[in-house]
Simulated assay, not measured.
Amino acid sequence: MKLFDAHCHLQDPRIFHKAPQLIESTVDSGVRHFAVNGVSEKDWHLVKQMSEHYSSVVPCFGLHPWFIHERTPHWLHTLKEFFQAAPSAAIGEIGLDKGSRGREIDFADQVEVFSQQLKLAKELNRPASIHCVRAFGDLLEILKSIGPFPAGVILHSYLGSAEMVPELSKLGAYFSFSGFLMSMKTQKAKKLLKMVSSERILLETDAPDALPKSGLDSLFLVDGDPSLRQEFHAQEENSTSNVGTPSDDQSHASKDSSALPKEMLNHPANIHNVLIYVASLLEMPKEELADLSYRNAVRIFSYEGSKVQMEK
């Protein structure tokens, strides 16, 4: 199986020093490409360097809504310079956020910065990877006012309503699913997935965030070795020995990734867990979903100058 991680952050300071090992082990697992998204002026150069060193990395430069208050007066000019220097780059991560972190930042300011970057995506004829939290109504109106987007827009870690899918699709939207989908009620997630046409489904990890809520033994750990898992199991056995034999439900829950420390980071190879989960909801063989999602990602990232090539 070939897989394409449509959205991640391997330049994130929490894992950047481990990126070589993470990329190697993930490529060994079948992942051919990573769309690595910058989030601010502070990390665009890291994304560029990573893409120059690894043929599997597709660079994406963008100003994330969480960081727009840190931007310099010349941020847009700097952003354009990065696209000139890296012709293989896409736009991302950009977007809108009315969630707990987004509320700290003026929404009108978010809209202005987001709109400027969407217009740049149209000008460059490049796809844009979009973050949206509790602002889908605003997002739709802005996309309508600037779009449509022939080069595509990627709604990353999509958790919006199923009802909005048709309108967003008409504007050129692709829907990318990560481990965050596991936080949605199963029936709601099924309804959402059924509304997305097979030509518009993408898979991602959003690593180092969005750790899938999967069985602990099926997860790749960022440390790259089993020591942390063994340590966790040792702690688990020690705690249960003090309270007696756990029930089946307790035993099952303890082996779920939700029992791991909150600071546990997501490994990009865990895209396999996302694949298995989404395939199960779609009642589709994982091999079929891997193939169609890979081809969708190759198509959207196969623009002029891209290192990703359309496959026949």
Rank of each mutant, 00 (worst) to 15 (best):
I94W: 07
S302P: 02
S25H: 02
E123M: 10
Q11F: 04
R71P: 05
E112M: 07
S258Y: 12
Q110P: 02
F107A: 07
L159A: 06
F232W: 14
V222C: 06
T240Q: 09
D206A: 05
D249L: 15
S88Q: 14
G92F: 02
R126D: 10
K119L: 11
Q230H: 14
L181C: 00
D225A: 08
E104H: 10
F175Q: 02
P226R: 09
P285G: 04
L216G: 02
F175E: 01
R200K: 15
E24C: 08
V39M: 15
L124R: 03
L282T: 06
G215A: 11
L140H: 13
N273I: 02
P261D: 05
W66A: 04
I300S: 03
D248T: 07
S25A: 15
P261E: 07
P246F: 03
L193R: 03
L275D: 05
M164T: 11
G99Y: 09
Y294A: 00
K119N: 12
A90Y: 08
A90P: 07
G224F: 10
S247L: 10
V165N: 07
D28S: 13
C132S: 00
L203C: 13
F232R: 07
H33L: 12
N242Q: 15
S214R: 07
D223V: 01
S241A: 15
H267D: 11
F232A: 02
I94M: 12
G172H: 03
D138Y: 11
G95S: 00
L171R: 01
S198T: 08
K122Q: 13
A35Y: 04
H33Q: 01
H69P: 06
Q110E: 08
S258G: 03
A173I: 00
N242D: 04
S198H: 10
G92L: 11
K185V: 11
E311I: 07
S178G: 05
K194P: 06
Q11K: 10
F82I: 02
A135N: 03
H9M: 04
E199T: 10
E167S: 14
S161H: 11
G244W: 07
A151E: 06
N125R: 14
L168I: 08
G62L: 05
M164W: 04
L289S: 02
H7W: 08
M50K: 01
G160W: 05
I154F: 09
L192M: 15
K194F: 13
R126A: 03
I23K: 02
E163H: 12
K307L: 05
D106N: 12
S29G: 04
P226K: 10
A189Q: 01
P73D: 14
S56H: 02
H267N: 02
G244M: 03
I146N: 02
I201P: 04
W66L: 04
K185H: 13
V31N: 06
L265H: 03
L46I: 09
H131V: 09
A85Q: 15
C8D: 08
S306Y: 08
W75P: 01
V27C: 14
E204K: 00
R71T: 10
L281Y: 12
H77S: 14
V278P: 01
E204D: 06
P261A: 01
V113I: 07
